[in-house]
Amino acid sequence: MRLPNVKIENEKGELIQTSSLLDAKTPMIISFWSTTCKPCIRELNAINDQFVDWQDQADFRVIAVSIDDSRSASKAKAMASGFGWSDFTVLYDKNQDLKRAMNVNLVPQVFVVDADGKVVYSHTGYNPGGEAELLKEIIKLKK
């Protein structure tokens, strides 16, 4: 599976194409989350806590995709800011187009996508420590 190209809202409220996330150099962790999903938030906070250390081992980006609808989007923006996810690209999938295109049924769902847009790993759910698996997958992609 490849990263589908759909429109999604960025932090500024602008619609962007998901294809614009690809740069042919840097792999990504794409994490789907919602404001009501406690495991989602725990996983993203765990990744955030280790992000700087992980960057010493591999260059990658984290894309946090909120699946909250337009009524909850402002809460999602406040949460992302409050948790200090400033190293992440936070996107808002208010119409759930990306969620549907990537067959996400439950959150948290996390994908590792290589620099060319190919999905190389995914998992659903979160167990503390499970985020280490994501780093292993990113390191495998080093060229």
Rank of each mutant, 00 (worst) to 15 (best):
R42W: 11
Y126G: 06
A64M: 01
S72K: 14
M28R: 06
V65E: 05
S70C: 02
M79E: 02
D59P: 05
F88V: 05
A76Q: 03
F83S: 05
P39S: 11
A101N: 03
S86H: 10
N95G: 01
I41W: 02
N95W: 03
V113H: 06
P39V: 15
I30L: 14
D49H: 11
D93F: 04
K25V: 12
E133A: 15
V52L: 04
I29P: 01
T36G: 01
Q109H: 15
D87G: 08
I67G: 09
M28A: 05
W33L: 03
S70M: 07
P39Y: 12
F88G: 01
V113M: 07
V90C: 13
K77S: 05
M79R: 01
S86A: 13
E133T: 13
W54H: 01
K94R: 15
L135T: 09
Q57H: 11
I67S: 08
D114F: 03
A73Q: 10
R61V: 05
F60Q: 04
Y92V: 11
E133R: 15
P27E: 11
M102T: 13
N48H: 07
D49R: 13
S70W: 08
L98G: 02
S74W: 05
Y92N: 04
N95M: 11
P128I: 08
A76E: 04
H123P: 01
E131A: 01
I47M: 01
N45E: 07
L44C: 06
G129P: 06
N105Q: 14
T26M: 11
G117W: 02
K38N: 00
F51R: 00
D93S: 07
F111I: 08
S66A: 12
K118W: 04
R71H: 11
